[in-house]
Design a protein around this nucleic acid. Sequence first.
DNA 1: GCAACATCAACTAT
DNA 2: CATAGTTGATGTTG
Length: 636
Amino acid sequence: MGSLIDLNLYPDSPLTDAAATAFLTLNVPKLEPKEEPFDEPPNFHTNFTNPNFDSAPNTQPDASKPVEQDVNGNDVYSEFNRISELFNAAFSGKTEKYDETEAIDPDSRAIVPVPEEEIQHSAVVDSSRRRNHQRSGELVRVTNLGLEDERYFRHVVRKTRMIYDSLRVFVSMEDEKRRNNHHVFGRNRNARGDLKSASVMKDRGLWLNRDKRIVGAIPGVYVGDIFFFRMEICVVGMHGLPQAGIDYLTSSQSSNGDPIATSIIVSGGYEDDQDAGDVIIYTGQGGQDKYSRQADHQRLEGGNLAMERSMHYGIEVRVVRGFRYEGSPSGKVYVYDGLYKVVGSWLETGKSGFGVIKFKLVRMENQPEMGSVVLKYAENLRNGPLESRPGGYVCMDMSMKKEKMPVFLFNDIDNNHEPMFYEYLPTSKVVFALERNGGEFAYDQNGLLVRGKPLIFECGPHCSCPPNCRNRVSQNGIKNRFEVFRSKETGWGVRSLDLIQAGSFICEYTGVILTREQAQLFSINGDNLIYPNRFGERWAEWGDLSQIFSDYVRPSSPSVPPLDFALDVSRMRNVACYLSHSSCPNVLVQLVLYDHSNFAFPHLMMFAMENIPPMRELSLDYGEADEWTGKLSICN
DNA sequence: GCAACATCAACTAT
DNA sequence: CATAGTTGATGTTG
């Protein structure tokens, strides 16, 4: 029997039927590792602080600098953009006269020679690899990131995800137009925007972490981050394969010839999987027919062998879990749950009677709570708040039924009930007449904001369109269950019990509108005035496809005069008032008109800039941080 | 229910 | 021996 076990440890010695039959009569046999071929894992580059760009900041945090700038005062995106330009040039037919000896000057946009001493540090991978679109085989573990680096990578990941999401929406809207204009036989199906978006970004060199094989955490991706598409995970460099569940460094790329698994996706696609959270029994890949039925024995090769080798060397593996999830555009969500170690592997008879390879994975210590656990917890809170969390509720609906969904008020820290002292104001008061919408749809079929604009017109009370008209989104009120909660870090904060997809409407920022003159009378007590003209223009970031289309121009119409009013929230306010400030916010403000046509007093509507997991604090860029004392800057 | 889809590792041909 | 081209495996999505 022992020889059978060894026989199956090599990729070129697949399990024969006879061997498998004999083998499977054993009780959960242990797979012995290869005869200790190496004591050491393949070569690693450790303490590698910046896997993307050699010249990115790697310094101690400096709280005095705005996050948008690096230590040299440069725009943090400039390097990102520079690399993108290089890739763009490389993929647009200019490859022949374009190599690492040239670069695009970030200021003049002209092609300039790269100084000799910088060439060998170029972040651009070698030309043959670039041409073949292939990933590098360099094994890297990212450690000891400073706060500044963390923020930098978060920005890059966030920006990349925004491009992916808005391009995906853009592609499906174009496809919808096309199908409406030309009735094509047999092509009524929606385009795969998820695939197309990723593909275009790949051609533009916008996928992250292609030049390294990262073992362990991906910089800028947090435990609990949520993805709606497999391709989205590929684009940020978490998992390089659009379908396969095990991503790995191949033996031919490994310095010692052993393949190494870097990441798995547990999607429940294998009947023999068992998932207990901290401990996963993961089924290897292979042996399924085209209907995803287990129809053959699995072999210890490819990703399966890589998992076994990762176990042998004690190398950590990223775990993403896939769930069915109502409300997701794809019907599923993928949650990054952190790092696990493979602690065991064996062969056993699966439910369908074929040999399957099992891996036991155990979650590593000292990591943030699992995203999938938080998802489950939030679901319990939605179904029975008091059962799941008996203590701490101040009020089960501080809007007093003025919102369509309850707004919970939660405080388990102190006895502060302050939000109850204000009248709840679901929408800012307006008294003018209606303006019609102009031109293209502002929202897609699912009510997602396509791209930010200076001002959006929704249909209003005088339109003859039905109430479920696609052009009525923000006026229909909140769709999520929010909770105002007391926090030691940020005072009051807001979080959602629901998963919020990027581009979704969150809520209006309400208050009593004061003109400049009125506000000046009020300014003795300035704490309770909000100045919307100070809000960061984050709407411009949403749907910014300038890195995809060279002729992309930032929307400039309709032109809106600078906002010249203040919101008085001293007596009446809504849930929005409790949002914390961040220079790396997950919520943006989009100006919207629907019930009147006065450009001077638009509604301040808030939309999600990211996929926001349940229980994660919402944050908004209030502009100058000094103006909003008491609110700390957070970045997650 | 099922076709279309993207990527890559591994293979074959040049 | 190196590189260019092909194929099979993988599972998701509408």
